[in-house]
Design a protein around this nucleic acid. Sequence first.
DNA 1: GTGAAAGCGCTAACAA
DNA 2: TTGTTAGCGCTTTCAC
Lengths: 365, 365
Amino acid sequence: MTSGTGSGPPTIVSIAERAGVSIASVSRVLNGLSARRDTEEKVRKAAAELGYVPNSVARSLKGGRTRQLTFAMPDIGNPVYVAMVREIQAVAKAAGYRLLLHSTDAVTEDELAVVRSLAERTSDGLIICPIRITPQHVEAIAHATAPVVVIGSPPPDAALDCVQADSVSGAQKAVWHLADTGRRRIAFINGPLDTVPGRNRDEGYRKGLADHGLGYDPELTAATDFAVTAGAAAAHELLDRRPDLDAIFCANDQLALGAAQTLHARGMRVPEDVAVAGMDDTLLARAAWPPLTSVDLGSAERGRIAAELLLERLREAAEAPAERTNSTSSTSSTDDTDVPPPAPRRTTAEPRLVVRESTVPARSV
Amino acid sequence: MTSGTGSGPPTIVSIAERAGVSIASVSRVLNGLSARRDTEEKVRKAAAELGYVPNSVARSLKGGRTRQLTFAMPDIGNPVYVAMVREIQAVAKAAGYRLLLHSTDAVTEDELAVVRSLAERTSDGLIICPIRITPQHVEAIAHATAPVVVIGSPPPDAALDCVQADSVSGAQKAVWHLADTGRRRIAFINGPLDTVPGRNRDEGYRKGLADHGLGYDPELTAATDFAVTAGAAAAHELLDRRPDLDAIFCANDQLALGAAQTLHARGMRVPEDVAVAGMDDTLLARAAWPPLTSVDLGSAERGRIAAELLLERLREAAEAPAERTNSTSSTSSTDDTDVPPPAPRRTTAEPRLVVRESTVPARSV
DNA sequence: GTGAAAGCGCTAACAA
DNA sequence: TTGTTAGCGCTTTCAC
């Protein structure tokens, strides 16, 4: 009963009617395909007059692509992830993709749901940053219906595209720096040891000490939550136990901030009495007093790399959609979903030490 | 040539074939409509075996809704916007909507493009947080093809849904607090005066002083950029000019952080010698040493309110799609796009002073 | 170069 | 209750 004109937003049908051509011609002109001069003019004129804007949903349905990417991260309040979002958004935008954001609150079930929801074809690809990577994650990602890039460190045998941080050598670098600047009793406030980051940073700390011939002393270490108050409390503990410590290395900036606050509260000078270093190089590091030396584990870089890798996978998929070639023509037993996957790529972002005044006194402010 | 089975992801057609029913029955069962017991079972079984997941794009095309919301903000690196994103994401998720993120870098052209892109029907509604609201913004938003909620303060005559901050009374509250705690020479480091926030904060500062019988002294004020280093520099200037000042109120936390750093660098104690207060109550405020008193202008709250308002508009639009009723049946002159708009709603988030140790010495730490 | 027509996967009106 | 059918708006053969 709809006449096609006057109801709802303009479509190619409205344009076709107004221009007196077929919808096919409209489509062609609008997509820059060849058309006779006057056809093109009529169509463009009608489209302009009607204020036509193509319906992206219809386009997606036809084309099988949404031009949307999804990024799923644990917590948008965390500056580390914000840095990733920022880069991903920029890369996506530049490539003509929109960015869909998911906050999983680090709940495994949520993360898995996001991966599975790729089957809804709401987005063309996913970048996911899980807090821990379980076998279920690996399984779900391996069977995902669209390209997935993981920001994190899956088990070595997992065949996934991923972008890792190297927190081992990151921690190591921080310890080197502290040792290089004359510190000898370097304490370490770590996060939970039952997490991958926790274990890695511990390893880096030990390596760093060993590299400089410094012994590992359990009394100089603490493991707690990744939070400012936890850092403050841990620092108190350490100082009570070992008042002679001359540096505190922390597994992230928030812990470092807490440690620095404790030092202030106890009337100790940073860095003269005790040097403090953190990790992640968030805006907190720059904001602290004194500004914190910190190890940039490359959040921004990982975000960028992940996005670029994902885009590459999408390009590949677009160029080689001939997955089912060479199979028996129309036998009903085609249930297998085995597709030769492109060799998974593992990239690692190189950590970068950013030296500020919490470890090296400023010459001039 | 496609048989419907075995190629590509399962669709209702594959299910129908496998279950030996029509696609309509499949659709019904899958949407929870009534069906005979065994039909339902057959369908569910087939769907499960095939690992069927509905294609959201096709659904959107049919239903005219994408179940996506867009949030456009100037800079995802800014904690104020991060707080908004967080809340918006939560509200959207709870209501079954996905969140599309746009970073406009505060470029007006980009902002307008986002509003106009609503015509592509990629998302059902938009929350936009423009840095300045121009007449073009008002115009574009008024003619948008989907509901838009503005976070910010459009001109009073603009008929837009919006959620405002009250930075005037926020600044005022901060000054009150400083005066109440005995400060008399309260300096003010503001952002650029040619922005709405800048002007409002200045107004609040003056009002606050007046309320307490304190005179306005231009020598005690500075206007600069919203950045840590700018705050530090401005504080130096103020202290050179007026070494007797006993408080510095700053138009945001970054400026306050910079001011605090300058005070430390000059060997002055916070808050004993000079109290410092900021605005926005970002995580920087809590991270600073001492922790900064700050005025929470309700970023999180504004985000939440905006999202809820937008959802309400969407509900209204869904319930009353009878815009074209009572018009002449099929006259061709139905070009007008005048639709009686629901009365625009203006909400204001109440500022909240958060007192910390940068203005009031801690009793015990 | 252009138009008619066939879908993309789904929902909903209408018949049976 | 169930099946047939007509679209949602678009792109893309395939004839003409």
